[in-house]
Design a protein around this nucleic acid. Structure first.
Lengths: 212, 212
DNA sequence: TAGATTGTTAATCGATTAACAATC
DNA sequence: TAGATTGTTAATCGATTAACAATC
């Protein structure tokens, strides 16, 4: 019995966590896992995992659970991770460099094909084997590489015009580290990484706690 | 008429975004804003903003809207941002250094009081005016400064033991950059920053799009 | 006063959980 | 076979939105 509703975005956001946990299990030499066991590792209920997976098919065996490698392969195929995705990164400050250098990026189907900055002192330098270029090169690089995924790590004031340029050049999904909400057309996916906002939401609870 | 239900966590997570938007408005010299206008800036409905704020009191005027400075002050008080929060950071690699150096941290009520690493080559060095210390110093620094907030930017394999040490020493809230779900007691707040997972959730949609 | 916008209630929408027949 | 665990449905829970009286 297949159910093929459009999976909600919350489900899509959890799939990468399932995939990662399965990768760890595979590394540990575990071959089979139940929704219960997987759930305990990532603090999600067993029912939720089964429900989430049911949007995409039937991957388990009653009485047994899931074959770790098979389920991982299924999820990676669902997420489009059987191919490697070219990514451009705009803003090569401390943070941008840390991202470009991060191994977890390269090892997980993400391939940085362009680094861009406005600082003339940075242009021409290499980070992780990729040369830093001027913004003027962005459209060409994006088109030539067919890149649809971009990371913005420029100061807040520059983020909107940078996003506009990227979208103009063909980018369809943006991960934005700048502390600002981008205005973008409907066909572009935008997600934010906002550590300060996250910390500020935790200070709410700390401020209310009994101080020890 | 006051309603004093416990505000849901989703609401608490949005408050920092409202606060930030109000700070930008204040900088722009805007004195008054409606829920409609504020909502357009951050892609949230006007009704949601009014509902969210209603958990904490009545801050607007019918027919007028909200006084930007007053509302900002209210939200900062709610979030506990009238005080500065000491934070320790564990793992001073490229990412940890970028975080420690980030101005948006210091300017927003977050004060790094300790940097920790295991690398003997790093211990003793300074980043942003704070010395890097060995893990052995963690409990002392956390206790002496009364720190309850920590950032983990160590490799995945080290994150759980680091979290255990931090919690033992009195930390109550953790922002974790390591790609692993931490197992922690109920009284500790944990949030994750996981760019690879976020990008992987976007490749899902890109893989399904008509390629241009 | 007339127009605008709040704060709040009720309606709607959507996501999570519980429960269980199917079946390995 | 007996025990375990899936996939799915229905029930529950919670969050968002619409609507409007109150009122600046």
């Amino acid at each position: 019995m297949e159910r093929l509703d459009d999976p909600p975005d919350v489900v899509i956001r959890r799939l990468p966590l399932y995939a990662r946990s399965l990768r760890y299990l595979l590394d540990e030499g575990v071959h089979s896992v139940s929704s219960q066991e997987l759930g305990e590792r990532i603090n999600v209920t067993a029912a939720q995992i089964r429900k989430d997976l049911s949007y995409f098919g039937e991957f388990g065996k009653q009485g047994i659970g899931y074959d770790v490698e098979k389920l991982l392969n299924h999820i990676e195929r669902i997420l489009g991770l059987t191919q490697s995705w070219p990514v451009v990164l705009v803003g090569v400050g401390h943070l941008g460099q840390a991202i470009a250098r991060y191994d977890g990026f390269h090892s997980q189907g993400l391939r940085i094909v362009g680094l861009f900055d406005t600082d003339p002192a940075k242009i021409g330098q290499e980070v992780s084997g990729v040369q830093i270029s001027d913004y003027a090169e962005m459209p060409r690089v994006i088109r030539e590489t067919g890149t649809r995924l971009a990371i913005i790590s420029v100061p807040a004031a520059d983020a909107q015009p940078v996003a506009d340029m990227l979208i103009d050049a063909g980018v369809r999904a943006i991960l934005c580290y700048a502390p600002i909400i981008l205005q973008t057309p409907d066909h572009v996916w935008v997600r934010y990484i906002d550590p300060v906002a996250v910390l500020h939401s935790m200070t709410y609870y700390l401020a209310r706690e009994h101080v020890v």
